[in-house]
Amino acid sequence: MTFKQMFTSSVGKKLIMGFTGIFLVLFLVVHAGLNACIWAMDGGVMFNRAGHFMGSNVVPRILEVGLFFFIFLHIIQGYMLTLQNRSKRAVGYAVNYSKGSKWYSRSMAILGTILLMFFVIHWKHFWVPSRITGVEEIKLPNGVEVHNLYAVMQETFQNIWVVVFYVVSCISLAYHLAHGFQSAFKTIGVHNKRYHAMISCIGYGFAIIIPLAFAMMPISFYLHWVN
């Protein structure tokens, strides 16, 4: 058996979704942790320093390439699987079976599409100015000149519709994670009851805490909880 055969079978395709999903879960921890620096209440000094480290150090830059690769692999594979799976039932049911599963488990593609729309707008707000079109510089107390991404956040989150869109996207992320977290571990073969109970518990906790932390960021700026 070749690796190509292995990862293109129905189980193999799901393994790709599971492994890339777990990588993206780890990325969310890093992203939320770094962004939490906005709550240092120091006018954005710590946040801008953290942003400068992520943009200038070689390790995060290499990881960023991996991140883009895995995120697009997850998106493309997800859409391909959804289309293939839908094609397996040419004639549908008159009465649908919905009692046996959660609505968000059946709606991963729709939740994922909302997240994809969010990514495009999120990248336009922050990644493109930071990497391509340029951001106003600010001098840190130690004399280093860095992108003032804190000011970009402050400005972006003054628009109520942007804040609402970010919060709705965080709710989509929460439901995507509520299914995706534990499903990814099942997919890569965790079947032991003890681990499964633990992973389900951590998964639901993760699906609440991380999206809540992200949602609080635009809200904090809009309501001037941070200055």
């Binding site: 799976n85 079976y97 599963s101 488990s105 059946r106 499903s183 099942k186 499964h196």
Partner: peptide, 24 residues
């Protein structure tokens, strides 16, 4: 046949209560 997405509908419908842990 299609690919599993771990929704759990199969387990809920199974007349013999086969556990979805078997899929993992």
């Amino acid at each position: 046949f299609g690919s599993c997405t771990n929704t759990g509908a199969c387990e809920a419908a199974c007349p013999k209560e086969i556990s979805i842990a078997n899929i993992a």
